[in-house]
Write a protein that binds this DNA or RNA. Structure first.
Lengths: 355, 355
DNA sequence: CTGGCGGTTGATAGCGCTCACAGCTATAGG
DNA sequence: CCTATAGCTGTGAGCGCTATCAACCGCCAG
């Protein structure tokens, strides 16, 4: 069965139709200056009439480009990655770029090599790195060796060497802590996240400093080490809630652990938020799925990713390396108050008594 | 600051070092037959010594290929997409391909055009389509017009025109229904999914047919229309559970609605599973995050995606169109029994009485 | 009238690879 | 001895685009 060979339109045909040289068409495609208004219009018309789409492979080969940006990750959170991806893809599309997603196994000792291989084959024009891969020494080194433009999302270490985008975990944590204190809580439990994750320390510091600011002593019994997972959250919450002098509120480093705390509380016959307030961090879908819905911090995940893509595209288009100091972008978080927090029952009782 | 210009190794340098022509190197790279063992070894050695990585742009331009497979979606479920992506990426990497993810807005009337544009620019070698985009007429038509190889995941309509991978929603639904019946449930509520989604009908049919098989009459009051969302799930569950003669079990078309049912039940003071059994569908992370954990159906999502990538890569490598009948792959689901289901209290009481 | 200059356009040489086809060598067959 | 065949390797022409640099057209200053 003979296929009607589907040769696609090339730049030459456009040039012929517009009665210009291919170079001029190329100029128009690449938005170069120095094309007269009239010629530009004629070329655009020809492009539209022929439904011409420039071949990216050819553009890439001739110009040593690829119009591809890589999103590298090893984050197990589907929600986080889907937000990142949405933000990055949207921005790429506006800029005429495409997103190539590549998961990496950060425990694989050869991951640096594999990264190098990918990059030199595909000629990626930039790479976005997400936590926790963003702090992986091997990957970072491979990326630097290949001199590929790189933007990091919420990095923890080595912040001077490459541009990054971030939010202020520390400030967010302080703000949430301040909110719990303003409700009247004094005994607040804190659930730490995974020790390898940079945000863990930031969030804890924010909590501690805000307590100190209010001259509330930090009870070490009320601080537990989880790993951001639901399972570890349950264990921590159980320890906290079976304490003789249990906390009136729990601030968990992420929503999964907060959700676990709610579940444990309910199983122990405690009502949330009447007997226990629970606050999370991240505003993942879980926060709205459980009942009561979680008070939490909304991270600007997709906006961070968009900003990262933005930096990369800008650099690729200008074709100029970044200069020191490396650009960075700070994006705003938001404290989202829902149903899982309320004044502690003692205060509430006081309130009722006063009436 | 003068950059030491980083020219990369080309096929010519490999050829020189191996003392062969570039064509022979090309043969080795492409695993073509007809290269003597000795020559092959010499070339491989040169490649390794120079750390040569073929330029994909050049390979693509010369051979009219791209080594790129597109994953097109408009599925709002992060978990679903992340599973799909994981399966597809893994398979692509094994085959030397790369995954380009492209979300589309299926409500945009121009989506067909945009798809066409992307494809002709990037020369994708194949596209994987996920639900519900998989049944979008405009996208499907654009894809067919561009004659690009296409594999659909769990399509509903038009199943003859392109290869697809799927699981048997109908059988899964019957099996879950049978399980509930085997526990002793007779009044079982059913929560329908989104009417546009092909699986909705399949799952409902499975439920109905299994009831019929056991000669259990279908009470129309016990069937409610949700839209796969937590919110609609709550509304439906509320209606069901405030019925005078409420069901002893609810089978929800997906986990979100099942989770909502659990939440509503608990708010109404019903204990799950003692007073109400709840079963879900999909085995999303939610199923394990809520308490009690959901009995549900595990979809082979990432294996479906891997199978889809597999078909595409195989076709790209063979460079032969598929022949009728189009290939299809059926993958196995799994009923995952957790804590949200148990015999109805009447039966349990009976059980206790019998002891 | 000449030279110079900004604005615009075109001719041509690759980019690094694959493909069609030609050429070479060694062995087998007539 | 010549030709046929098979196995392996090389030659040269592009793929569709961008980059370099030259050419051209006014127009103005000297």
């Amino acid at each position: 069965m003979a296929q009607p060979e589907k040769r696609s339109i090339t730049i030459r045909e456009v040039a012929d139709l517009a009665k210009v040289s291919i170079k001029t068409v190329s100029r128009v495609i690449n938005r170069e200056a120095g094309v007269s208004h009239e010629t530009h219009a004629r070329v655009m018309d020809a492009i539209a009439r022929l439904d011409y789409r420039p071949n990216l492979n050819a553009r890439g080969l001739a110009g040593d480009r690829s119009f591809l940006i890589g999103l590298f990750y090893d984050n197990p959170s589907a929600h986080y990655m889907s937000d990142v991806q949405a933000g990055a893809v949207a921005r790429c599309r506006e800029g005429g770029f495409h997103l190539l997603v590549e998961p990496w196994d950060s425990t694989d000792p050869n991951v640096g090599d594999q990264v190098l291989n990918l990059i030199s084959q595909l000629r990626l024009e930039g790479v976005i790195l997400t936590p926790p891969l963003v702090d992986h020494a091997g990957v970072l080194e491979a990326l630097r060796a290949s001199r590929i433009p790189l933007v990091r999302i919420a990095p923890d270490t080595d912040r001077e060497t490459a541009p990054f985008v971030y939010m202020d975990d520390y400030a967010a944590s302080r703000q949430m802590t301040a909110y719990l204190i303003s409700l009247g809580h004094r005994r607040i439990g804190f659930l730490l996240g995974h020790p390898d994750h940079g945000a863990t320390e930031q969030r804890y510091r924010g909590f501690r400093d805000e307590l100190a600011e209010h001259r509330i002593p930090l009870d070490p019994d009320l601080v537990r080490h989880g790993h951001f997972s639901y399972r570890t959250g349950m264990a921590c919450a159980e320890q906290l809630l079976t304490l003789a002098d249990r906390p009136t509120a729990i601030f968990a480093s992420n929503d999964d652990m907060a959700a676990a705390s709610v579940a444990v509380a309910q199983r122990l016959g405690l009502s949330v938020p009447a007997d226990l307030s629970v606050a999370g961090f991240d505003d993942t879908p879980v926060a709205r799925i459980i009942w009561p819905q979680l008070t939490t911090i909304r991270q600007p995940i997709s906006r961070m990713a968009a900003a990262a893509a933005d930096l990369l595209i800008d650099r690729a288009v200008r074709r100029q390396p970044w200069t020191h100091p490396m650009p960075r972008r700070l994006l705003e978080f938001e404290v989202v108050v829902r149903e899982s927090t309320a004044p502690p029952s003692s205060v509430a009782a006081l309130g009722r008594a006063r009436r």
